[in-house]
């Protein structure tokens, strides 16, 4: 192989005039972080609502939860992003479609919402499993004390269910970070996107993607550490993993 290694490339100015190549990658990393965080917040909110719906005694609620989850988890993420980005504006009335297409940062919002909804189906399934794993008597005890259904979930069931599913939720958070890379296909120049442009400008493909890889690893290491810290903080003395 005839390849000119050049690790100094990161400190050379990039052709866009926005600083060095490293600055380019860092701005991509920052966009990845922003997209992942917003997507994760959406996944948590929508996933929690749908997860709770799936555990309610009402048949209607169960059906809504079922349809939601199966819609979002049975399509490839790539297809979903294309759907939201390219197809949806065409299906809507012309004026609204046009407005959507001209929104500033459309790739960013589409990616965050698209990845968020995709991940929310997975959060929903896990939360529903967490709630179902609690003893049936917990709900009965809360109900017998006069708590309403909303209060029972808010004060009794959800605090325990979320503690139980924290380890798998960590994995989903990591998946959210990694899935943002798919957004390159709708024109979001996040970390993977910046690594690709660096490769195109400098022909230093290995350096570019080594750096991107390390940045993803580092970012997810931060997520794992933060989640571990959270797990320890909310651990209940004498209970399961608590000490």
């Amino acid at each position: 192989m005839n390849y000119n290694w050049n690790w100094g490339i990161f400190f050379q100015p990039n052709p866009m005039g926005t600083g060095t190549y490293l600055d380019m990658l860092l701005s991509g990393l920052w966009l990845t972080i922003k997209t992942a965080l917003l997507a994760w917040i959406i996944a948590l909110i929508c996933g929690s609502i749908v997860g709770v719906l799936r555990t309610l005694p009402s048949k209607t609620a169960e059906w809504i939860g079922f349809l939601y989850v199966e819609f979002f988890r049975n399509m490839p993420l790539l297809v979903q992003l294309f759907l939201w980005f390219f197809v949806l504006p065409e299906l809507l009335p012309r004026a609204i479609g046009l407005w959507l297409k001209q929104l500033p940062n459309a790739p960013f919002w589409t990616a965050a919402i698209g990845v968020g909804l995709f991940m929310s189906a997975r959060v929903a399934v896990q939360l529903a499993a967490g709630i179902s794993s609690l003893p049936r008597g917990q709900k009965q005890a809360a109900t017998a004390l006069g708590l309403t259904t909303v209060q029972t979930y808010r004060y009794v069931l959800l605090p325990m269910a979320f503690r139980i599913i924290l380890p798998p939720l960590t994995s989903e958070f990591l998946n959210t970070v990694k899935n943002t890379a798919v957004a390159i296909t709708i024109g979001l120049i996040e970390l993977t996107g910046q690594a690709r442009s660096m490769q195109e400008f400098s022909f230093q493909v290995f350096e570019a993607f080594t750096a991107a890889t390390l940045m993803y690893l580092l970012l997810n290491l931060v997520v794992v550490t933060a989640m571990r810290f959270l797990e320890r903080r909310v651990a209940i003395p004498g209970y399961i993993a608590g000490k």
Binding site: P135, G137, Q138, Q140, A141, A142, Y155, V156, P159, M160, R163, I236, Y239
Partner: peptide, 10 residues
């Protein structure tokens, strides 16, 4: 009062 107490563990 329940057989398995059902205190709220958290």
């Amino acid at each position: 009062v329940f057989q398995h107490f059902e205190l709220f563990p958290h």
